[in-house]
Design a protein around this nucleic acid. Structure first.
Length: 475
RNA sequence: GCGGGUAUCGUCUAACGGUUAAGACAUCGGUUUGUGGUACCGAGAAUUAGGGUUCGAUUCCCUGUACUCGCCCCA
């Protein structure tokens, strides 16, 4: 630290001396004091968020706004109502719903004890909290299906890499109280609509059925027996999985496990009658919808509450690389697992960060935010005072106006106005302030006229040729 | 959690182990006091942190940190 300080002092001292400007001693004293203080503070606060957290800067917001618009439109179309649940829940909610033995619960949860001694966690996904709210607020008395839509941050203590953050945003669509497979199909249709509205092409759905607790138990028995017989050919992780969560061996990425898994019994061959019928009609509906799907018998998903239908949405780029955008499935027993009345349900989540990433990749068409077409310049103390009211008056009339009240010279204000590309600059100086007038300058032609306050709005609108940007409109 | 790569002004880039750490873009101010662009002038702004090797380190070595890529896993 001392060394750092010395370095800075030296650097500044030599710089100042050569410039021969301000008294050297004074300048150095002030400079170094504030400088090192700033450095100390910056070191203390790190000047960056913790690992895996990031800022969504103004430049990114158009993408997020676009997404929000699409979500609110589609949730309206399909009858999903918005719900927001807390980012913090009791840890047991997730242990109970997502399940022990899953990576999410075992190694990726932000879990901590509050000052009051409660064991809580940052939500690693949205469905559990929504399920909890469903039971707590007695939503089972609402007409079925109860369709809920939610977005918000979720947290996983994972290693960040491309498209992967410890805090990321998900959008969730969940429908409670209906077991008909047409709902499964409609949800997949909804997912398809969201993704294509965004402008993403090259989508593929991967679909599987993992059965209900009854047939899955039988299937798992078969699977375990099979893998036990090939145990020596499995990777270390899969040997562990065999004990904890044998289904997950199916989507291990190790070559040798893939080979073993290829010949493993498939869940869709072992479904009970009910599950088979359910899956079969889902496929019929999907064929009717003409959606791009493939059956992937090795698709399992990392949350243990799923039953019957599971699916994922993938997008492919030019290089053939695939990006997972989201996934979901049926969870007919989640609500009773959480202590509620038996309620079949289905839902899916989309990774909003990844959708934004894809939007950028495919250069998605964006809704363009209105930009100010008028600039308000002021000159002198009196004009400055008046300008606040003029500004408010313009906004009230739906005229988006930019300004730079803090700036002094008219020249710098006009320069800014020009750079913003406005069509009109309004100028209030000492004289105008006294006369209750404003100079209306047409930036294209360069001509200007002085008008009364009363006539200001009309004059401005006339120049803008009725193409007034109106605020507070939907869409 | 495991491996590989990277780290210089706000951004992008430059600097045989020896420079006052350079430039461009951006920002701010100015070129006579009430009018834009261009041009010109000026200002602020960086070697990720800590150790080591060396007469001397932005440069070489080690460690931490962050970013990034791959694995694991997922969205």
């Amino acid at each position: 630290m001392a060394q750092v300080k010395g370095k800075i002092v030296k650097k500044i001292a030599t710089k100042k001396m050569e410039k021969k400007t301000t008294p050297v001693k004074k300048a150095v004293g002030i400079k170094t004091a504030s400088k090192s203080k700033a450095q100390e503070v910056q070191e203390e606060i790190m000047l960056q968020p913790p690992r895996g957290m990031r800022d969504l800067l103004p430049g990114d917001q158009p993408y997020w706004n676009q997404l929000r618009r699409i979500f609110s439109k589609i949730s309206l179309e399909y009858g999903y109502q918005r719900i927001d649940t807390p980012a913090v829940e009791y840890a047991n909610l997730f242990v109970r719903s997502i399940g022990k033995g899953t990576d999410i619960v075992d190694k990726e949860m932000y879990i901590f004890t509050t000052k009051g001694g409660d064991k809580v966690a940052l939500r690693p996904e949205l469905t559990a909290g929504i399920g909890r709210a469903f039971i707590q607020h007695g939503m089972n008395v609402l007409p079925k299906p109860v369709k809920l839509f939610s977005t918000g941050p979720v947290y996983r203590y994972d290693r960040p890499q491309e498209g992967r953050y410890r805090e990321h945003f998900q959008a969730n669509f969940d429908a409670f109280g209906e077991q008909d497979p047409i709902l499964d199909a409609q949800l997949i249709q909804l997912a398809h609509r969201v993704v294509t509205s965004i402008g993403i092409k090259n989508i593929q759905f991967q679909i599987n059925s993992i059965g209900c607790p009854k047939c899955r138990k039988e299937y798992q028995g078969l699977l375990v027996a099979y893998f036990e017989s090939k145990k020596q050919k499995l990777c270390i992780n899969c040997k562990k999985r065999l004990e904890i969560n044998p289904l997950r061996i199916l989507d291990c990425k190790e070559d040798k496990c893939i080979q073993v898994a290829a010949l493993a019994p498939q869940s869709i061959d072992r479904l009970c009658n009910e599950c088979r019928v359910h899956f079969k009609s889902l496929l019929e509906y999907l064929d009717e919808l003409d959606l791009p799907y493939v059956i992937n018998p090795r698709l399992v998903r990392g949350l243990s509450y799923y039953t019957k239908t599971v699916f994922e949405i993938w997008s492919g780029d030019e290089e053939g690389k695939k990006h997972s955008l989201g996934g979901g499935g049926r969870y007919d027993h989640l609500i009773d697992e959480l202590g509620g009345e038996h309620t079949p349900a289905i839902g899916f989540g989309l990774g909003m960060d990844r959708l934004v990433q894809e939007m950028k990749r495919v250069h998605a068409k964006m809704y363009i935010e209105p930009k100010p077409r008028v600039f308000l310049a002021q000159l002198g103390d009196l004009a400055k005072k008046k300008s606040l009211n003029v500004f408010a008056e313009l906004q009230k009339n739906g005229i988006l106006t930019a300004e730079s009240f803090g700036r002094g010279s008219l020249k710098s204000q006009l320069r800014l106005a020009d750079r913003l590309g406005v069509e009109i600059t309004l100028i209030i100086g000492q004289k105008e302030a006294l006369d209750e007038t404003v100079i209306v300058k047409d930036m294209v032609s360069g001509t200007q006229e002085t008008v009364n306050h009363q006539r200001l709005i009309i004059a401005v609108k006339k120049i803008l040729k009725n193409n007034v940007v109106v605020l507070h409109t939907e869409e």
